[in-house]
């Protein structure tokens, strides 16, 4: 047993070391690379906490897509001249910030250790209700069946983020498309990667979506993988980011929440309450909703990474 403990402690120290590197790195690019590595290590910590769903999400969205976002923005900032050296914060700021952060961290650690040991849990209620949803994976059940209101609203948050990102463009580019993600003439290796990895990735994504009903997986993780594949295609310049006013893109972006709301409103007719599912048909409806959520996430993440429109009516 002690070997596992040693591994755990080693992993914890490694995670903290990479985190420190992220904060202390001299320039942006190093920090972003460190952050991507940190995200992947964190996924392993999530596995140790018996949370495979979260590990998948952390790896795919937490470090994967966020990593791409930060890397491309770091590149754009670096390429357009060095970000001017901001006024170096004084020593007193460093000391006071360090002291306060240390105090906050120790207070938090103390409180976490003092949390009640058999911590009150909703697992028993989840066990009872799980049968009604016909699902195997309780996390998906929480996300789509019991706390579906949160998930639907979170899609609206994503949509507002898209509107926010687009609204930052300048007026003359409105209706155009975001700047291409990759360089003009992609190299052979990139094309090879794109041609072989993308079909496989799509296959894996759909598999994870499908298996999500009963085992770790689901719309979020699958959506992130499909989004990653679309981004690889765009980086390899096999296809360009879609224009802002193209109808299919907008329909894709709202399909998830729209289907969710329609099913929710129908719930009052079929099952007596909003967002409730009729007894026999819970699973098919859930999978139907999840399919559209998959489509929405796969469309939203690349649009957020591509950013606001920067070219007028380009190809």
């Amino acid at each position: 047993m002690s070997v596992l403990q040693i591994l755990d402690v080693g992993l914890a120290l490694l995670v903290l070391a990479v985190a420190v590197w992220t904060i202390a790195a001299r320039e942006i690019f190093g920090a972003v690379v460190a952050y991507v590595a940190y995200g992947l290590l964190l996924a392993i910590v999530w596995i140790r906490l018996f949370a495979p769903d979260v590990a998948l999400t952390e790896a795919a969205i937490g470090s994967g897509v966020t990593g791409i976002l930060l890397v491309t923005s770091g590149a754009r900032l670096k390429s357009a001249g060095k970000a001017s050296a901001a006024a170096k914060p004084g020593l007193s700021l460093h000391l006071s910030a360090a002291a306060l952060s240390l105090l906050a961290a120790t207070a938090l650690a103390g409180v976490i250790l003092a949390l009640p040991e058999p911590s009150p849990t909703l697992a028993p209620e989840a066990r009872q209700e799980l049968a009604a949803t016909g699902l195997g994976n309780p996390v998906t059940a929480v996300l789509i069946a019991w706390r579906s209101f949160d998930t639907m609203l979170e899609k609206i948050v994503l949509l507002l983020a898209v509107v926010g990102v687009w609204s930052v463009a300048s007026d003359r580019f409105w209706g155009g498309a975001p700047a291409p993600l990759g360089r003009a003439n992609p190299q052979g290796a990139l094309l090879l990667l794109e041609q072989t990895l993308v079909p496989l990735g799509i296959l894996v994504g759909v598999h994870i979506f499908w298996v999500g009903a009963n085992a770790p997986g689901g719309a979020f993780q699958a959506g992130a993988i499909l989004a990653a594949m679309w981004m690889i295609v765009m980086i390899a310049r096999a296809s360009e980011p879609p224009r802002v006013n193209s109808l299919w893109l907008r329909l894709a972006l709202i399909s998830g929440p729209a289907v969710f709301i329609v099913a929710g409103l129908a719930g009052i007719g079929m099952a007596g309450n909003f967002f409730a599912y009729p007894d026999g048909f819970a699973k098919p409806i859930i999978l139907f909703i999840e399919a559209f959520m998959l489509l929405t996430i796969a469309a939203t993440l690349p649009v957020l990474v591509a950013g606001p429109p920067r070219r007028s009516f380009g190809p």
Binding site: D53, I61, A123, V139, D150
Partner: peptide, 13 residues
């Protein structure tokens, strides 16, 4: 406990 994990997934997104 599945509920906090669902919250984490929403939080990450």
């Amino acid at each position: 406990d599945p509920v906090p994990q669902a919250m984490v997934i929403t939080g990450i997104v």
